[in-house]
Amino acid sequence: MSLERRQFLKIMGTTAAGAGMLGAFRFLEKGEATQILGSGNPNQKWVFLVNTYNCVGCGMCVRACKLENEIPYNAPVSRTWVERYVELNSGKVLADSPMAARDGFTADNPMGKTVNPADITKAFFVPKLCNQCEKPPCVQNCPVGATFSTKEGIVLVDRTWCIGCGYCIMSCPYGVRFFHPVYHVAEKCTWCYHRITKGLKPACVFACPFGARQIGNPQDLNDPVTKTIATQRVAVLKDEYGTKPQVFYLGLDRIVR
C-alpha cells in the first residue's frame, strides 16, 4: 500500500492527537491519591479499646454519636450501637439492639420477651463501632475510590464522590456502613475523625460514663490503652475475614456476633 505524503501526515497527526488525549489519563501509584488529598498524619495511629465489663447499656454513646455526627435522631441507623446478649440456662441466646440502643436498655425485654432472672446464665452488653480495619474490604471494593484509609488508618468516605452503589455496605462483615438518610451516600463511623485530629476524644468515648470505650495511640507504649491491649487478653470481632480490625475487646464472649 502506498501512502501519499499528505495522507501520511494526516494519519500521524491524528495519532499524535489521540496519544495526547490519552496522556490526560494516568494511573495513580498506591497511596498517591491519599498523598494528593493530603489527608492524615503519618506519625499518628489510632486504636480503640472496648471494655465490655464496664458497659451498662445506657446508650449515652449512641445518643452522643447521633448528635455529634448529624445522623437523624429518629432514623433507625447509627454509626455506633450497643448490643445486649442474654444467654439462658437452656443455651438459647437472646440478642438485640433496638434503635441501635439509642434509648438505653431500661427494661427486662430482650427481643421483646420477659425473662425470669433465674433462667439467665449470663448477660452483658457489647458496644459496636467501625473497626477501622487494617485491610478494609470496603475500601478495596469501592469502585470509584470515594472511600479511603487516611494515614492514621481511619477509613473515611468522600461524600462529594460516593456514587451510592452500596458495594461497601455489602462488603463490611460488621454491618457498620449504611446510606446516610440525608446525604444518600455511604456513611460510617470515623471514630470522630474531626475531633481526634484536634486532640479531642470521639463523642462516644467522651460520653461514656463508665470508661467502656477508650481510644489510644498504639505507637506510644505508655498509653494506658496500648498497655492494656499489650498486656491483657483481648479479642477482635470476626477475625476470620482477614480484615485486621483495630477495635480490641476485653471480655468478648463466644456468643457475640
Binding site: P143, V144, G145, C162, I163, G164
Partner: peptide, 14 residues
C-alpha cells in the same frame, strides 16, 4: 443513590 455520579466509574475507576 447518586445516579448522576455514575460516570465516575469511567472517570476514576478504583
Amino acid at each position: 443513590q447518586q445516579p448522576l455520579r455514575g460516570v465516575e466509574i469511567y472517570m476514576t475507576p478504583h
